[in-house]
Design a protein around this nucleic acid. Structure first.
Length: 420
RNA sequence: GGAGGGGUGUCCGAGUGGUUUAAGGUGACGGUCUUGAAAACCGUUGUUGUCGCAAGGCAACCGCGGGUUCGAAUCCCGCCCCCUCCGCCA
């Protein structure tokens, strides 16, 4: 959420920032509501000050004056009417503010769509085998490590079953990634609830605009997490973090659930875009002036995984039209999949500035006695699993269709060297 | 799911309609004293909104939301969370 003061003082800056994201914001409506709100609020507050004063006088009187009390009853009714009006305006204002995306960082390239994302650097040479690489959706069933038919039987399209060494590969990847981030990168592991209240999704910016893509339980009004970012952000919702507590680095491995309604019909084959997948998510709460450096380190942490897995990748600076709603700047990591013949997004690392902190009311005290300030939050996948599994199946594939197990994963797979 | 108890500021804790502008303690910060520290003593110390160039004023906040009243931490109604016991259960 943007600061109302920012909109009040720089409406044109906000307007053009939102436009650069191919989005629109009802700035004029907000400005009008803001003026109305303060007008009605001061009417109410003046009357309350009067009521407080008179009530204090009445308290001291032995004889309670009926006429004065009747007059104050009238004042009370007026206050109630003004407060109702303020409540309505607050609600309208809040509804509008929640729909405005974050303002892009000046270094975010301006663009109109994903074609305007900039490749900023890359690592490793994509392998060019002299045989035809089998796409993972064909190889998975052949090796009996992914069962698409039975996944569909159980739960419908975009569901799958990992079996035997496929399931083991996923488990090995998770453990390996968690261990690296915990032991080498200084993150603390979090195991959060997979079902959360609406408040949590408003906090990250997933609601109100993206509810269509999230599974919702009507009976208890709980939502299945689309990413660990949601529960982890809200760990410190409505808190003031004490001096010395920042930075906080968390890493969380969860299942992620997405309805994929907005991408209906896209990527229907394989495990690239599915309703349920595993992800290891890195998350940081930091001081505002550190967040830009922290974003660089977050990207590096994700890259380390790719490098140790020896999977070639490229890094994209997302353009204004493509960064996510709460982000001011994002870098994506993409691995080349020679069987599927496309780049796979395996990580998205974003700086959200104080956007989520303001929505979720997460503040910190720079030093004892100092005024609380909003923290900055960052999130980045480290990494998203099904796509890394695809990359391994297609990059480590041999001519006979067997898959060489990356070195770093072997200790997690009982020393296994080959999936065949 | 049933019965009972509870939720007050950084924390502990008093407070059942009006000198409560939330007692007292604790923590933190500043000062006096001291070679330095501790102790003692004195002072300061919540959040948000709003008005104001500022100094500062005003308003709201005692789990959350309503209600009663001239006036609510206090009374009434609904909800949430925690604790104890019972039931059920991976």
């Amino acid at each position: 959420m943007l600061d109302l003061k920012t909109i009040r003082e720089n409406p044109d800056m906000v307007r053009s920032a939102v436009a650069s994201r191919n989005d629109t914001a009802p700035i004029d409506d907000i400005l009008k509501l803001d003026v109305d709100r303060r007008k009605v609020l001061s009417e109410s507050e003046n009357l309350k000050a009067k009521r407080n004063e008179v009530s204090k006088q009445i308290a001291k009187m032995k004889e309670k004056p009926a006429a004065l009390i009747a007059e104050m009853r009238e004042v009370g009714d007026q206050i109630k009417a003004f407060d109702e009006k303020v409540g309505q305006i607050d609600q309208q204002l809040n509804d509008l503010l929640l729909q405005i995306p974050n303002i892009p960082h000046p270094d975010t390239p301006v663009g109109k769509g994903e074609d305007d994302n900039k490749v900023v650097w890359s690592w490793g040479e994509p392998r060019k085998p002299d045989f035809e690489v089998i796409a993972h959706w064909d190889l998975g069933p052949k090796l009996d490590i992914i069962d698409f038919d039975r996944g569909t039987k159980l739960s419908g399209s975009r569901f799958y079953v990992l079996k035997g060494l496929g399931a083991l590969l996923q488990r090995a990847l998770t453990s390996y990634m968690l261990d690296l981030h915990i032991k080498e990168h200084g993150y603390t592991e979090i195991y959060p609830p997979y079902l959360v209240k609406s408040d949590c999704l408003y906090g990250t910016g997933s609601l109100p605009k993206f509810g269509d893509n999230i599974y919702h339980d009507e009976e208890d009004d709980l939502w299945l997490v689309p990413t660990a970012e949601v529960p982890v952000t809200n760990l410190h919702r409505d808190e003031i973090l004490q001096p010395g507590m920042l930075p906080l680095y968390y890493v969380s491995h969860t299942a992620c659930f997405r309805r994929e309604k907005m991408s209906a019909g896209r990527d229907t084959r394989g495990i690239k875009r599915v309703h349920q997948f595993e992800k290891v998510e890195m998350y940081k709460f930091v001081e505002p002036e550190k967040s830009e450096d922290e974003l660089d380190r977050l990207v590096k942490n994700a890259e380390t995984i790719c490098q140790q897995l020896e999977l070639p990748y490229r890094v994209l600076a997302l353009c204004t039209a493509d960064i996510s709603f709460p982000a001011n700047r994002s870098f994506d990591l993409e691995m080349w999949a020679p069987g599927s013949n496309e780049w796979l997004e395996v990580s998205s690392c974003s700086n959200c500035g104080d956007f989520q902190a303001r929505r979720a009311n997460i503040r910190y005290r720079p030093e004892a006695g100092a005024k609380p300030q909003y923290v900055h939050t960052l999130n980045g996948s480290g990494l998203a699993l099904p796509r890394v599994i695809i990359a391994i199946m297609e990059n480590y594939q041999q001519e006979d269709g067997s898959i060489v197990v990356p070195d770093v994963l072997r200790p997690y797979m009982g020393g296994l060297e080959l999936i065949k």
